[in-house]
Design a protein around this nucleic acid. Structure first.
Lengths: 146, 146
DNA sequence: TTTGTAGTTTAGAATTATTATAAACTAGAT
DNA sequence: ATCTAGTTTATAATAATTCTAAACTACAAA
């Protein structure tokens, strides 16, 4: 990594991305490589939605990628473990008549939620909220699988 | 609560529901009362989606409630604090390139997610998963508000 | 190198959850 | 009994996501 020109660095990153894709059985297509570069060739990790990723990729005059492909790719990357989906309930809102502070198991197989009793979870350290913000609520979700 | 007939018990529960609604400035309409009975007159707390609640209410030959009203009512009850919405990202899926176990702030005002460093949160007690299931992942989400 | 084929991309249609609209209805104050 | 702001309702509109089926492509095998 000493003294690589931009071009070289780019080529190395691309090789690595191709390796990463292959390592999980994903064909390194032009589109997947481009998306992977957008996702992984960064200093910091980042959060995105399919919509925001799609915008980002298709804004510059560059090659366009179809929205369907962005969806497919994000799903494939998630399954492969290259990215991770953050706590959501698959586009459906879940509600609970239990309004005390408590936690949940979320069963990935059955998509079912179960309460975890408040005293079954203990947090011994919690971060300070950013300035100007208050903690409204803290929730632990434990995802289950067979 | 000694020896109440079903009818009496029902009337008391209804009174209580009306009080509950009024206590948060919600007019106790026929529809809200019916929905509240479905939600709160139970042994255990329970989890539901608008869809499931709507089905449940409208299945029996009884009075029908419009889907729009179920949506309105669930929103009103949530705002009033009678029910609570479980971790979701408002019908949009969020993804993260950070696949290490880590946690998030979710800013309710800006709808933005921020990473919380793994070592900023410590759990001193975690429940056992149900039989036949494994913990795939544990995530803490701290919701922020101004 | 050419070829065959399974895997992939694509535009557009279909689906699903949710929100908006605007007219009809109603709880409750006067 | 009447009035009115709050509520309900059917329906349309929107938004995220999934489906479809035809065109394309990576790459294994000849």
């Amino acid at each position: 990594m000493i003294d690589l020109t931009k071009k070289l660095k780019y080529m190395v990153q691309k090789k690595e991305i191709i390796k990463k894709l292959r390592s999980t059985g994903l064909r390194p297509t032009k589109q997947r490589i481009l998306i992977a570069q957008n996702l992984f060739d960064r200093e910091k990790t980042f959060h995105f939605t399919v919509e925001s990723l799609n915008k980002q990729i298709n804004k510059k005059g560059k090659e366009k990628i179809s929205l369907a492909t962005v969806y497919n790719t994000v799903e494939a990357f998630t399954k492969a473990g290259h990215i991770k989906e953050i706590l959501t309930s698959k586009s459906k809102s879940y509600f609970d008549t239990n309004i005390r502070s408590h936690h949940h198991f979320y069963d990935e197989d059955s998509k079912e939620l179960t309460d975890i009793n408040y005293n079954q979870v203990k947090l011994s350290k919690v971060p300070h909220p950013p300035k100007g913000k208050k903690i409204k609520n803290l929730e632990v979700v434990i995802r289950l699988q067979k």
